[in-house]
Design a protein around this nucleic acid. Structure first.
Length: 227
DNA sequence: CACCAGGCAAGTA
DNA sequence: TACTTGCATGGT
């Protein structure tokens, strides 16, 4: 494992203990909330630093206009797209990001999800990371929830929750944290899928920076003793 | 009113 | 490499 020595007390199995606790508390989430892989990709971009509630509105509008298709979405201008996704914030930036992805998707995979899914994982991940507006978390969300690849998604809640439990260094870079989770869990799609979804549930309900609600968190029994 | 949300890119030193 | 800032609506 590649974490620093300060976290060597970690024992294999702990991550499953956390998972089981969350699964018992919240129940299975069956992520991603979206009807098609393409909708998942658009949602992954729109939800950057934004509550899902705001994203839902934008997705609904795109759906009403029958725009949730890569070729059709390419037919409208970036400014028109921006106006349709106003509710999720950063709408000019996000319209630009979606345009860049659509360009990439058509250019490399003829806007075909199956073609993209056939690309070897490492190569596809590196390609996604070259697209303007797709960083590590968005790339991994796309890979896991739209491409059904066994990739663990790291987000701010993951850092907040697991560093509080002394399992990770909150300042470790994204790649280090991703490998930490991937290397210490069985590489099963359903596990990676549900685990990240359950982390987000925990974050939303109990670990917001403003209203932490630590006393009601299902993980509070697992907090390390501060002796 | 202030502050935050399922990030990312671009600028500065 | 390691900070800092802009992006922006909607909820608390």
């Amino acid at each position: 494992m590649s974490m620093s020595s300060s976290f060597d007390h970690y024992i294999n199995g702990t991550l499953m203990t956390y998972f089981n606790r969350l699964l018992e508390f919240f129940g299975p989430q069956y992520w991603w909330p979206g009807d098609t892989p393409f909708e998942v990709i658009i949602g992954a971009i729109l939800t950057q630093n934004t509550t899902w509630k705001n994203v839902e509105k934008s997705i609904a509008i795109l759906k009403q206009h029958d725009l949730l298709d890569p070729k059709i979405l390419r037919s409208i201008s970036q400014d028109e797209l921006a106006q349709l996704i106003r509710s999720c914030g950063y709408y000019n930036q996000k319209a630009k990001k979606i345009s860049h992805f659509l360009q990439f998707f058509e250019c490399h995979y003829q806007s075909d999800i199956e073609r993209m899914r056939q690309e070897p994982l490492d190569r596809l991940r590196n390609q996604l990371l070259t697209v303007h507006g797709i960083g590590p978390e968005t790339a991994d969300s796309i890979l896991l929830y739209a491409m059904s690849k066994q990739v663990f998604v790291i987000d701010s809640y993951t850092r907040r929750i697991f560093s509080r439990h002394n399992l990770i260094d909150p300042d470790a870079d994204y790649e280090t944290l991703r490998l930490f989770f991937e290397n210490n869990l069985k590489k099963e799609l359903y596990l990676f899928n549900e685990y990240h979804a359950l982390i987000v549930c925990t974050g939303k309900d109990f670990c917001r920076t403003k209203k932490p609600l630590c006393q009601q968190c299902p993980l509070k029994e697992l907090l390390p003793n501060k002796s």
